[in-house]
């Protein structure tokens, strides 16, 4: 390990460091990187051919209506996953709270007050989750599990578990019923959110830090970054996504109840992971989450059309999460070895 003849060494080492030969092709990598495009296409084609009623305009609108709120939640939660903090379970409580506040407060006061209050609540969720995880270094699954129970508990306690109905004629109602071709307005909101958050993730300083933090916490901290704010920010975006998801959900049904968002946590997670965002952090994209949402929604729709109930849908989504993460983990193992 001496460098007594460094100059000679430099001269005699023209291309020795060019060991960047392309990696060998491995099916597992292809599956992890590109699989979702093929699977989604195949799924849609198969459904269109074999499932009665899938290709109808009414059904497609229905798929969009159901996909939009989950998708909006998922694109927001993508930030938490990319920051290597697993997921934000508390979106279940957040979506329901936003929906109830939107309809309940609009009925009592007006929509502006409802939205303002929702925003305050969303920021509070983001702050509590973010501080617990980013400052106290607590495990995100356990933290968001407890905030889910606290949040849902508060909501049910304060509302007494009652269902809120919006008036037959209102801004909210007309938002929920307006369509552009087969597209409900909520789909437009989803696409807008996805484009916006995609820009945030890829173009802004903050999004960059989220990716960097997810890829390597220590290196990000040692670059002089205030990493606590990065984590808080990621949970804030997740909270705002959940809030808007709640609004859209409430507008679609024009009713709100504390139990309406059951399953949003894992459907969103499934969409994110199936889209190709890695639970190991650092890698992922909002646009791919959008693709994941399409996949998960179409799959759910096929099951509904085939008469498979809630239980089967849950089984499918659980299996989907485990499979997608397994592919990710195996691809990662193959790369590291």
């Amino acid at each position: 390990m001496t460098d007594t003849s460094t100059k000679v060494a430099v001269a005699s080492q023209p291309a020795a460091q060019l060991d960047l030969s392309e990696r060998d092709f491995r099916p597992i990598d292809w599956l992890a990187q590109r699989g979702i495009f093929v699977f989604t296409t195949v799924l849609i084609l198969v459904a269109a051919v074999f499932i009665d009623g899938f290709a109808s305009l009414a059904n497609i609108t229905d798929v969009f209506n159901r996909a939009a709120p989950i998708g909006i939640v998922a694109v927001g939660m993508t930030f938490v996953v990319i920051s290597a903090n697993y997921l934000d379970l508390s979106v279940v409580a957040q979506v329901a709270t936003a929906a109830v506040v939107l309809i309940g407060v609009s009925n009592e006061y007006n929509i502006v007050a409802a939205m303002a209050l929702s925003l305050v609540i969303a920021l509070t969720y983001g702050l509590i989750n973010g501080v617990a995880v980013g400052v106290f270094d607590a495990n995100a699954v356990i933290v968001t599990l407890s905030t889910t129970f606290i949040g849902l508990g508060l909501l049910r306690w304060l509302t007494g578990g009652s269902i809120y109905f919006g008036p037959p004629e209102s801004l909210i109602r007309s938002f929920g019923t307006t369509k552009i071709g087969p597209f409900p307005l909520s789909m437009l909101v989803l696409i807008l959110m996805a484009v916006l958050l995609s820009l945030v993730l890829t173009r802004t300083n903050f999004g960059f830090l989220v990716r960097s933090y997810g890829s390597n916490r220590a290196a990000t901290r040692l670059a002089g970054v205030n990493t606590a704010w990065v984590v808080i920010g990621a949970f804030m975006i997740s909270a705002i996504g959940a809030m808007i998801g709640g609004f859209v959900l409430a507008a679609f049904s024009n009713t709100a109840v504390s139990s309406m968002s059951t399953g949003f946590d894992f459907e969103a997670l499934a969409a994110i992971i199936v889209g190709g965002t890695s639970v190991f952090g650092g890698r992922g994209s909002v646009m791919r989450t959008l693709l994941g949402v399409v996949f998960v929604s179409v799959l759910t729709n096929i099951m509904v059309l085939s008469g498979l109930g809630f239980g089967y849908q849950q089984m499918a989504i659980g299996a989907l999460i485990v499979t997608a993460v397994s592919i990710d983990a195996l691809a990662r193992k193959a790369t590291l070895s």
Binding site: R203, T204, N205, F206, F208, L209, R211, S212, S215, N216, A218, A219, T220, L222, A223, G224, V225, G282, R283
Partner: peptide, 30 residues
């Protein structure tokens, strides 16, 4: 473990401590 985010590109790694110089109003210039 402490110096580099190995799964990110070289340019992203280089950008990390130089964010403020390479961005305007929080938007990074690719």
């Amino acid at each position: 473990t402490d110096g580099l985010a190995l799964t990110m590109s070289v340019s992203d790694n280089v950008a990390l401590p130089n964010r403020s110089e390479l961005s305007r109003a929080g938007i990074l210039s690719r």
